[in-house]
Each structure stands twice: as C-alpha cells, then as structure tokens.
Write a protein that binds this DNA or RNA. Sequence first.
DNA 1: AGTACCACCTGACGGC
DNA 2: TGCCGTCAGGTGGTAC
Length: 257
Amino acid sequence: MPELPEVELFSRYFAQHALGQRVARVRVLDERILGEVRKAAFARALTGSEFSGVRRHGKHLFADAGRTWLHLHFGMTGDLAYYADTPPRFARVIVDFDNGWHLVYEDMRLFGVVDLTPDPQTYIVDHHLGPDPLELTLPKFRQLVAGRRGAVKALLMSQDILAGIGNLYADEILYQTSIDPRRPADRLSEAEVKAVFTVMRRILNNVIDRKSRGEDYPARYLIPRREEGERCPRCGGSIRRTVVFGRTTYYCGKHQG
DNA sequence: AGTACCACCTGACGGC
DNA sequence: TGCCGTCAGGTGGTAC
C-alpha cells in the first residue's frame, strides 16, 4: 500500500538509479497501466531523453524528462525495480538505459498509473490535489480542518484536501493522537488539531527514515497490529475493527474513545 | 458538503 | 484436490 512514505522512497530510488542516464528504449508490456497517453506516444516521448530530476507530491511521483514529465502513481501494489537481467513477474513498463540496465514499473493489481504530464504543477492543479503534509504549516492545516463536518479520518484520506495519507497512516495518526476516527473534524479541540498535525508529520518522517535504513515499524505502532482482538501496545486495550469512509478501520476501543 | 456503493484487478486464504 | 466467496486497498464515477 504505497502511501506518502513509500512513494518518497520510490522517489529516492528513482533518483539514485535513473538520473543522468539516457533512455535507449521503452517497453509497455501491459497497456492497461497507461493513463491518458497511448503506447506509441509514450515510448516516442521518452526514448532518447534523460531524466534530470524527480519530484513527489503526496502519493504521486514525477520525473523530469525534458520535454515532458513521467508521472507515476503506485495504486496499491505498484513498485520500482532496477535490474540487469531478469524482469520481475508483474513488470508493466520497462525503461531500457544505454548502460544495459533497466528500470521497471511493476504492479500486480494494475491500480497504478503510468502517464506523461506537462509538469507536476499542472497535474496537481488539474487533479485538485491538496497540499503535501510535509510542506504544510500548522496555520494552513488549521484552515484545512476548519468547517469540515465529516469524519476526521475521511479528511486525512481525501487527496483533494491533503495529498499523501492513505488508510494505514490515517489510522496510525488517529491511534497515536487518541482520537476516534469517526469524530467530526470540526469538533476537534485546538490542541487535538495541533496534535494531529505534529504526529502526522512525525510518523511520516519517522517511517521514511526507518524504511530507508531497512528497519521495520516501531513496536508501539498500530500498523503491525491491524487485527481484531489484538492488544493495544499503548494501553493494553483491545483493537477493534469497523468501517469509516468505506475503509476498514482499526482503532483501540479503550484509549480512542 | 459528505458519504455510500460500485468498478477496476489479482492473489491469498478460509470453508466445504 | 479444487472450487467459491471474501477480502485487501487507491481512485474515480455515480447516486443520494
């Protein structure tokens, strides 16, 4: 489930392996992964170009290819791999570089998107993406929350309000701030809004740091305990399961009341 | 404004 | 053994 932290790692991975290399050839193995662009136009636009920079906004990754930008979204099972010999099982698009190596976009469930866009800002505006949580200030976050009568979990997950948080991290943020996911956003106290802002950014940065070092989630996180009846590592309560905003939601029945 | 529900897709898993 | 239903999750569209 690639959310903001995972896409940030993809972005670093892309930069590490692809920047400065010339694209010799592009192979689209499954056209269903393409967005607006057609196969031939996609290959034509990238062949011969060189990726000069990478940008991430929320769960979206953009790579500067000169005349156009490559746009990647990872859906639920999307991934990148840089390899020399054997492509992964669910390879959908393969970029062959001059040096003989390959960068592959793989996606078992095909919920992701590979596309071209004039530039990141155009895409962000056209698709009504909200601000990235890591480029946000507390006053701006307060403005986003003000007047929102829906569930706080729905707000965190709505990409047009805030871009980058998905189901898992929304639950994690509310778990760590002891807030019931069904609470209306505009009924949170000022202190709670501040806590959500602070904890949200701490979790995202912490997970990016840990995963970039190959470490797991901390033992006190909810994420490794997404199962009904699990013990809450914070208070010993029982982990419950429900549906909020159409998504399976886990929370501690004791300290998130 | 906010939410419910479906579709997209495929592998894992439990039940029989 | 193997079939079937269900679930997982991001997004986008439609209906209310």
